[in-house]
């Protein structure tokens, strides 16, 4: 889809790798020669507290750096879900952690058990690779190859394999 500007919001709790996830996604877009802007909203807590990361990706110039019309919102906390539930367009997908987020009501909501699946995978810190895989399946803003390349370039060898595994699980298991 040439000319399309994608807006992806990653919302949840500080410490869930939302900012790193956004940066990884943006870097993959830059690798593909696209324009990407990543911003964040955070509170005064270093750990915990509401946190969100926003990524805008386009083949055109990106002017407004924030997501005012998101195509996809990842909600890893109830607060993240509630914040966006009423303000996003009908066609916006909210991808939520069904282990955590309750009372979902929208037609374009997609649930996935991020919390339990990341435990199965064996490293909670791989959650950002897991959700990036799912995000990519629903919103093909960059290729999974580009994302893999960014992970290969940025992650230490000892945690790379588990992150690539999480990325692929997240990608494959979303319907």
């Amino acid at each position: 889809m040439a000319g399309k500007t994608w807006q992806i919001v990653l919302a949840g709790t500080g410490g869930q790798g939302l900012i790193l996830g956004g940066v990884t996604l943006a870097k993959a877009a830059v690798l593909e020669g696209k324009n990407a802007v990543q911003t964040q909203t955070y509170g005064i807590q270093s750990r915990g507290g509401y946190s969100q990361s926003e990524v805008v990706i386009s083949e055109e110039d990106v002017y407004f750096p924030k997501c005012d019309r998101p195509d996809l919102v990842l909600a890893l906390s109830q607060q993240g879900y509630e914040r966006y539930r009423t303000i996003v367009a009908d066609e916006c997908i909210i991808l939520y952690d069904q282990d955590v987020v309750k009372n979902t009501k929208r037609s374009h909501d997609v649930g996935y058990p991020f919390s339990t699946r990341v435990m199965d995978i064996g490293n909670v810190k791989a959650i950002n690779s897991l959700f990036l895989g799912s995000v990519l399946k629903l919103c093909p803003v960059v290729s999974i190859e580009s994302l893999t390349k960014v992970l290969e370039d940025s992650l230490p060898a000892k945690i790379l394999a588990i992150n690539l595994k999480a990325l692929n699980i997240g990608y494959e298991e979303i319907g």
Partner: peptide, 9 residues
């Protein structure tokens, strides 16, 4: 704050 924390190329 936005310009300072924003990441882009």
């Amino acid at each position: 704050e936005v310009i300072g924390h924003m990441r882009e190329s």
